[in-house]
């Protein structure tokens, strides 16, 4: 059993990667903030914290699905912005919500299709989609404004039986993510495809009879859908559409996934790691806010963390 313990501590020989270290940091952060700041451990601040973390958690789950395959989706930030923009057009929710879903499926499909069929590097495909989608979002809503369906605002900010709804929404999203990644054949196939890609044998999973191309396209669609969900949540929180609200999520989601022990080369990672990573990011923002640290420096610190985490991961390939 000591071997197992050692594996968990070092993240070696584990498909979940190194998640125990960020967990410890989260716990230490939690405890020290509770002790040092009176305002921290209040249910008001905690539900705020979760509300802040929620979009990142959602989009990071989608990002993780793609990263497990050895890919990456840099268009999620723009997809979030587009969602808020679409939700804030002057139309009833029965129109806007299907519109968002269709848009997400289209964006995800184009990403996936470019990658598997047209042989475009995932980062380049999704980077160009980032600009295309952002352009569309800005065409629809050049500056922040408009109003989103009332029920979204209610859901995000309201309470049910005296409990903040965000406490109920979180488990549902996590359950969906868990089902997709760890509780289905599809999830296992994601790991299989990513494991082959990380070893430099892209067709390893294909030789087991897995239809890798279709699975990869589906993964990019999932990623876009999760981004749309995160966008809907954000739209509810800010009660309007904003074409710039999503921008930071492209890198933040990658950071959250990478902090959680998921290998960017694919095949290694776990949902709990990603949740820990997203929480760590939220805690960081929350802590930095409580400590009155400039919002601008927070961006630098997050960028520094991303660099540190990715520099510690090993990769065989050089370049993109």
């Amino acid at each position: 059993m000591t071997a197992t313990l050692k594996n968990i501590l070092t993240g070696k020989n584990s498909r979940q990667g190194l998640w125990i270290l960020p967990l410890i940091i989260v716990v230490i952060g939690f405890v020290s903030l509770s002790v040092s700041t009176e305002d921290f451990a209040t249910s008001q601040n905690l539900s705020n914290l979760l509300k802040q973390a929620m979009p990142l958690i959602i989009v990071a789950i989608g990002q993780m699905i793609v990263i497990l395959l050895g890919g990456m989706d840099l268009s999620v930030g723009s997809m979030i912005s587009l969602t808020t923009a679409l939700l804030a057009i002057d139309a009833p929710a029965v129109v806007t919500i299907p519109l968002v879903v269709v848009a997400a499926v289209m964006v995800g499909f184009i990403n996936g299709f470019s990658v598997v069929r047209l042989n475009v590097h995932p980062i380049i495909a999704t980077l160009s989609m980032q600009f295309i989608v952002l352009g569309v979002a800005k065409l629809i809503r050049p500056v922040a404004g408009g109003s989103v369906p009332e029920f979204l605002v209610q859901w995000v900010n309201g309470t049910i039986f005296g409990v903040s709804t965000v406490f109920l929404l979180t488990p549902i999203v996590i359950l969906i993510g868990w089902k997709l990644i760890h509780g289905s054949r599809y999830g296992l196939h994601l790991f299989a495809i990513g494991g082959g890609a990380a070893e430099g044998q892209e067709d390893a999973a294909h030789n087991f009879g897995i239809s890798d191309r279709r699975n990869i396209i589906v993964a990019y669609i999932c990623s876009a859908l999760f981004a749309a969900l995160a966008g809907a949540f954000l739209a509810g929180r800010i009660a309007s559409g904003d074409p710039n609200v999503g921008t930071i999520f492209a890198l933040d989601s990658v950071t959250a996934v990478a902090i959680g022990g998921t290998q960017l080369s694919g095949g290694i990672g776990g949902l709990h790691g990603t949740l820990i990573g997203a929480l760590l990011m939220a805690l960081l923002s929350n802590g930095m806010n409580l400590a009155n640290l400039s919002a601008f420096l927070q961006g630098s610190i997050k960028g520094g963390i991303l660099l540190l985490v990715v520099a510690l991961q090993s990769r065989k390939k050089m370049g993109l």
Partner: peptide, 26 residues
């Protein structure tokens, strides 16, 4: 060797034809 290193022995053995329980669980 064509096994996938990041999967367990059992998962490698059943990859592509995993038995399912209720709710589509493996």
């Amino acid at each position: 060797l064509s096994l996938l290193p990041n999967l367990t022995i059992a998962e490698n053995m059943f990859l592509g034809r995993e038995p399912k329980r209720s709710f589509g669980m493996i």
